[in-house]
Design a binder for these strands. Structure first.
Length: 214
DNA sequence: CAATAGATCATCT
DNA sequence: GATGATCTATTGC
């Protein structure tokens, strides 16, 4: 029931309620490269929304029109419009009629690659997160794509939001030495289910779909 | 502990 | 009219 995640200070800013304090916001060029590169590079970085913040520990790459599992596979539509714009923006959509999923647009403008954010390690604003997800343990607060949007207060209102300007931002925080990045097939898809496009920090308790399985 | 059903709706066929 | 980048509760072993 209590926090099983005992960890040393990973916190970025000494300043308690700074959404965008001392930490460096990842620049647009960070997102302006191959989707898989962006996905791997996002691990360990900090997602910030107001007083709430979490460390990205699990992501999936969706490659665009050549990827049968990607929304952009069927081409440009109203929903996928933002994927065709410049990188570094948020793509948020509703899945299964009840959960919001957060993605970051990657690749140069015109190429609809994106990275699904699947899990966070809660760092700040835990009170607000618990209010949004009553009963969840600390490690489970943001352990899954639908859970993290709920805990972080992210909705389709953030569709198209510029990640370099807010209200949603990503702050630089490299993966500390000793933490390994692992790859696996993506979760919950039927097409292209063999590709190893899911990346996560091995052994992190906030990663969804327990290590051995899936 | 593992498997499964139900919730619920925007998007696309 | 079917489907889905999910989550939760419940059932069954």
């Amino acid at each position: 029931m209590n926090s099983r995640i005992a960890r040393e200070p990973t916190i970025v800013a000494p300043d308690p309620d700074c959404g965008a304090g001392a930490a460096v916001i990842l620049p647009r060029k960070f997102y302006n490269r191959a989707t898989v590169e962006v996905a791997r590079a996002l691990l360990g970085q900090i997602l910030v929304h107001g007083e709430r913040a979490g460390r990205i520990v699990e992501v999936e790459a969706y490659l665009g029109e050549s990827d049968p599992a990607a929304h952009a596979w069927h081409g440009r539509t109203a929903r996928t419009e933002v994927l065709y714009g410049p990188p570094g923006h948020a793509y948020v959509y509703l899945i299964y009629g009840m959960h919001e999923c957060l993605n970051f647009v990657a690749e140069p403008e015109g190429k609809p690659g994106c990275v699904l954010i699947r899990a966070l390690e809660p760092l700040a604003g835990l009170t607000a997160m618990r209010r949004a997800r009553p009963g969840a343990s600390e490690a489970d607060l943001c352990r899954g794509p639908g859970k993290l949007t709920r805990a972080m207060g992210i909705t389709r209102r953030h569709y198209g939001a510029d990640l370099t300007r807010g209200p949603l931002t990503v702050h630089e925080m490299r993966v500390p030495p000793g933490e390994e990045i692992a790859a696996s097939p993506r979760i919950g898809i039927r097409r292209a289910a063999d590709l190893l496009l899911r990346f996560y920090l091995r052994d992190n308790p906030c990663v969804s779909a327990l290590q051995g399985r899936r």
